[in-house]
Simulated assay, not measured.
Amino acid sequence: MPQITVDYSHAIDHAFDRAGFARALHGATVEIAAAKPEACKTQFRASGFTAYGYEDPEAEEHAVVHVTIGLLAGRSEETKARLTEAVLALLREHIEDDGPVLHASAEIRDLDASYRKF
Rank of each mutant, 00 (worst) to 15 (best):
P2I: 02
Q3N: 15
I4S: 06
I4E: 07
I4Y: 05
T5R: 15
V6G: 08
V6E: 02
H10T: 15
I12C: 09
I12S: 09
H14S: 15
H14P: 14
H14L: 15
F16N: 05
A19W: 09
A19V: 12
A19C: 12
A19I: 14
G20W: 02
G20M: 04
G20P: 06
F21C: 01
A22W: 07
A24S: 05
A24G: 03
A24H: 01
L25H: 02
H26D: 13
A28T: 03
A28I: 05
V30C: 03
E31M: 04
E31Q: 09
I32A: 02
I32Y: 00
I32E: 01
I32T: 00
A33W: 00
A35P: 03
K36Y: 06
K36R: 13
K41V: 03
T42Q: 07
Q43M: 14
F44A: 04
F44I: 03
R45V: 10
R45K: 12
A46R: 01
S47K: 10
S47A: 12
S47F: 09
G48C: 00
F49K: 10
F49G: 09
F49Y: 13
F49N: 07
T50N: 08
Y52D: 08
Y54H: 15
E55I: 10
E55G: 11
E58T: 11
E58R: 12
A59Q: 11
E60D: 11
E61R: 13
H62C: 08
A63L: 02
A63P: 03
A63H: 05
V64I: 15
V64W: 14
V64L: 15
V65W: 04
V65I: 05
H66V: 12
V67G: 03
V67Q: 05
V67D: 02
T68Y: 13
T68A: 15
G70S: 07
G70E: 06
L71R: 07
L72Q: 15
A73N: 09
A73T: 11
A73R: 11
A73E: 10
G74A: 04
R75T: 02
R75M: 03
R75K: 10
S76P: 08
S76R: 05
E77K: 14
E78Q: 13
T79H: 06
T79R: 10
K80T: 12
A81Q: 14
R82W: 05
R82F: 07
T84C: 13
A86C: 01
A86L: 01
A86E: 01
A86K: 01
V87Q: 05
L88S: 06
A89S: 02
A89H: 02
L90D: 02
L91F: 01
R92Y: 04
R92A: 09
R92E: 12
E93Y: 07
E93I: 04
H94M: 00
I95R: 04
I95K: 01
E96P: 08
E96Q: 11
E96T: 09
D97E: 08
D97G: 09
D98W: 10
D98C: 08
P100V: 01
H103L: 10
H103R: 08
H103C: 11
H103M: 06
S105G: 06
I108E: 03
I108C: 07
R109Y: 09
R109M: 10
D110V: 04
L111Q: 07
D112N: 11
A113P: 15
S114Y: 13
F118Q: 14
